[in-house]
C-alpha cells in the first residue's frame, strides 16, 4: 500500500480539533500521522502527559477512537490488559475476532523514566501492541523539567544554566537501544517532520508479529524556546545534524532510514532553540565540543551496527 496524502485525506479523522495543546505542538501531529497510517481500527492507551490532559478535558474528548486513560507509568500495562482481554473474549466466544491494533501513546517521561520497567515487562510478555513514544525531551506538561531523554547541557527548569552548572549534567539514555535489546520484532526512531518515514514505520510496526516500539522526535516550542512555526524545522535540523538519527531495527537487524547522512554540526540545531542559548557562548565552547564529539561517536557506532546488520 503506497502512501499518498491525497488518499489519506479520505480516511475518517481520528483526532478532532478543539483540544488544548499549545499552538505549534507536534504531539497531535504525530498522533494523527500514526492513526491515519494504521490499516486496522485502533484502541489507544494513553499515559499521563501533555497529550492526555489536553485531549481529554472532561466532559469532552478530542479522540474519535477508543481511548483508555492510564497513570504515568502503566500505559504499556494497560495496553497489555486490553490485548489479553480481547484474546480471552475471542477465545471464550464472547467477542467476534476482528483486526484491531492496540496503540500506546506515552511521552518521554512516561517511557524513559517512570514507565520503563512496565514497558519492559510488557515487551517481555510479548503483548502485541504499537508503543509510540512522543519524545520532547522533558516533562513539559508539569513545567519543563529534565527527563532521562534530555540531552546533556540542556536548559530546563530543574537543570538551569548559570554559574554553577551549564544545563543538564548527565547524558541522556538510549531507550530505543534498550527496547531493541528486548529482541522484539520491530523498533524504530522517527521524527515528526518526516511524515512518510514515520507512517512507513507505523505500518511496519503494525504488521510486526509481536510488540513494536517507535520513538518519535516531537519538538515542544514552549519547552525548547523556539517559535511555534519552527516545530518542523527544529525536527529537521535534529535529524540533519545527527542529534536524532532515523533508523529501524527489524528482527534484530539495524538499518538507517531516510537520507542516512549527517550533514550539519549540532550547533545548527541548537542555535534554533533558546534552551541551548548558553552553549553558544565562549565560556561553554568546551561543553558544546563535548556534545558534538559524543554525537559523532554515537553516529559512528550506529553506522557500524547498521553495516554489520546486528
Amino acid at each position: 500500500m503506497t502512501l499518498k496524502l491525497q488518499a489519506l485525506t479520505e480516511r475518517p479523522e481520528t483526532l478532532a480539533s478543539g483540544h488544548g495543546l499549545c499552538p505549534g505542538c507536534s504531539e497531535s501531529v504525530v498522533v494523527r500521522m500514526v492513526l491515519m497510517a494504521l490499516a486496522n481500527p485502533a484502541v489507544v492507551s494513553l499515559a499521563t502527559g501533555c497529550l492526555e490532559v489536553s485531549s481529554t478535558r472532561f466532559p469532552d474528548t478530542a479522540w474519535k477512537v477508543p481511548v483508555i486513560h492510564s497513570a504515568f507509568e502503566n500505559a504499556a500495562s494497560t495496553a497489555s490488559g486490553i490485548e489479553a482481554a480481547y484474546k480471552a473474549l475471542v477465545r471464550k466466544g464472547r467477542m467476534a475476532e476482528r483486526p484491531l491494533t492496540f496503540v500506546v501513546f506515552a511521552g518521554d517521561g512516561a517511557t524513559y523514566d517512570i514507565g520503563l520497567q512496565w514497558l519492559s515487562g510488557a515487551l517481555e510478555r510479548r503483548h502485541r501492541f504499537v508503543y509510540v513514544c512522543l519524545n520532547n525531551e522533558g516533562y513539559m506538561n508539569t513545567g519543563i523539567q529534565r527527563s532521562g531523554a534530555t540531552l546533556k547541557g540542556t536548559w530546563t527548569t530543574t537543570t538551569p544554566a548559570g554559574a554553577a552548572t551549564a544545563g543538564k549534567v548527565d547524558w541522556n539514555k538510549d531507550v530505543t537501544a534498550i527496547v531493541a535489546a528486548h529482541g522484539i520484532p520491530y523498533v524504530a526512531q522517527a521524527a515528526v517532520h518526516h511524515w512518510k518515514d514515520l507512517m512507513t514505520k507505523v505500518r511496519k510496526a503494525e504488521a510486526a508479529a509481536g510488540p513494536s516500539f517507535i520513538n518519535v522526535f516531537a519538538p515542544c516550542n514552549r519547552g525548547w524556546r523556539h517559535e511555534p512555526e519552527d516545530t518542523m524545522n527544529v525536527s529537521r535540523l535534529a535529524v540533519e545534524s545527527g542529534a536524532w538519527p532515523l533508523y529501524e531495527v527489524i528482527d534484530g537487524a539495524w538499518h538507517m532510514t531516510g537520507s542516512g547522512r549527517k550533514t550539519r554540526p549540532v550547533a545548527d540545531y541548537m542555535r534554533a532553540q533558546g534552551r541551548f542559548k548558553h552553549l553558544m557562548t565562549e565560556a561553554n565552547a568546551g561543553l558544546l565540543a563535548e556534545i558534538q564529539a559524543r554525537i559523532d561517536s554515537e553516529w559512528v557506532r550506529l553506522q557500524k551496527r547498521c553495516a554489520s546488520g546486528v
Binding site: A16, S17, G18, F58, T61
Partner: peptide, 23 residues
C-alpha cells in the same frame, strides 16, 4: 452543574466533542 453529572467510570461517550471548544 455539568461537572457533577459524571458517568460511571468517568466514561466519555461523545467522540470528538472537543470541537465545541473554539480554540
Amino acid at each position: 452543574a455539568e461537572w457533577k453529572r459524571i458517568s460511571a467510570g468517568g466514561l466519555v461517550s461523545n467522540p470528538g466533542s472537543s470541537e465545541r471548544v473554539q480554540t
